[in-house]
Write a protein that binds this DNA or RNA. Sequence first.
DNA 1: GTCTATACACAGATAGAC
DNA 2: GTCTATCTGTGTATAGAC
Lengths: 230, 230
Amino acid sequence: MNFEEFKEIVVSHAKSNSQDAFTENRKDIRVKKEKTVVKNLERIFEATLKIGNEKGFHAMSMRDLSEETGLSMGALYAYFKSKENLLVMLQRNGRDSFQQILEQSVTEEAGPLENLKIVIKTHLFMSEAMLPRFYFTYMEGKNLNKDEKKIAVEHEMTSDGIFTDILKQGEKLQVFKPHNHELTTAVIKAMLNDWYLKRWKYAKLNVSVDEYAEYLLRVVEGFCLAQPQP
Amino acid sequence: MNFEEFKEIVVSHAKSNSQDAFTENRKDIRVKKEKTVVKNLERIFEATLKIGNEKGFHAMSMRDLSEETGLSMGALYAYFKSKENLLVMLQRNGRDSFQQILEQSVTEEAGPLENLKIVIKTHLFMSEAMLPRFYFTYMEGKNLNKDEKKIAVEHEMTSDGIFTDILKQGEKLQVFKPHNHELTTAVIKAMLNDWYLKRWKYAKLNVSVDEYAEYLLRVVEGFCLAQPQP
DNA sequence: GTCTATACACAGATAGAC
DNA sequence: GTCTATCTGTGTATAGAC
């Protein structure tokens, strides 16, 4: 699997993003016509990601957002009840679709090594396909309130669990070396996150997402595989 | 070298932080008595890091800072000419001392493997000793203006260069495998940064900084060493 | 559903007394 | 050097017309 092949899966999923956001946040959204909501919510999310990644969510004013979306301030507030609420909607929405896709990527039939490769590539390709979303979610996570922060941490632990389970199963089947698999997961995640956190660096190094995927896999295999490969 | 041993080097360096900041920013600082400046600048920096890491630099008001430092708003503005200027001072100051220490850690006498171990540990231990600073510098880097961002990127490329040079030298001496060493540096940095970016995770895993250091070294050795170790 | 106009709280910054 | 008091712009959010 390379990025080009993967892209279609994500794009089809991404379409349903604002749809999901509508059903999840119905009670906070004053506008009732679903078609209108889906259309405008998509514009609002996109604009928020754009401005938010340029100058930070807190520094983005509602006037900025109004200008970028083409909607008036009054209209904007028909789609969320406060600026903070908008942040929460965006974050939840992003995390949910991420988790869904990641969970679906693992298969019972595949062996541990194959599954590990799949989740690493899925994670990486998803971040590539939705760069602004991932960057925003990472950077603005700290601006969430206490409860939402807790939810965010739980989500991350769940997705870490997917990796860790694969590693543990691999150890049992003697495909992988015994290690502190939670820690291995942590460093794999660190390398995966770096791809969207340090765009300028990888652009400068002229590395494609497919090349980065192969590189990561070699690093991980070098450390995890019980029998080193040729 | 473990963290306990390393700590003293950093702490002695850290003392000179606000001293350096004074000499570097003399023209923007209205107060003239060096002793006063050093003392108050330290309080201001510390308070900024604290509040900034809690709610973000942009969300920190000057009234917040005034309360935390015990200085009035008027007094604060005697130490920097604008809020943005304060951010720039803090970032520059942090980067400079970081770079100094990292550059000094490499020695001509040591071999590539030893030097690689040293820079990794130095980087990691420094971030551990100055956690709030590192977290702040990473998270607030995107709020810098264009010129300062450029300087920040150049600094990171310089410190990446230290790692890459060691790796290249190691390849020449056939201690390390041939690889894309820039890319290897990037992923090592990613793992190093994760230590201060994801505090909650490593706290939950109950991993000490010394354990993390050993773990990273094993990952890196597994990937880089020409002759795998027993 | 969307607009314009506006409320009013709070931001960064400075003047001038001490 | 440090304070208090204050200026002025901008922030989020809403009311009410269309």
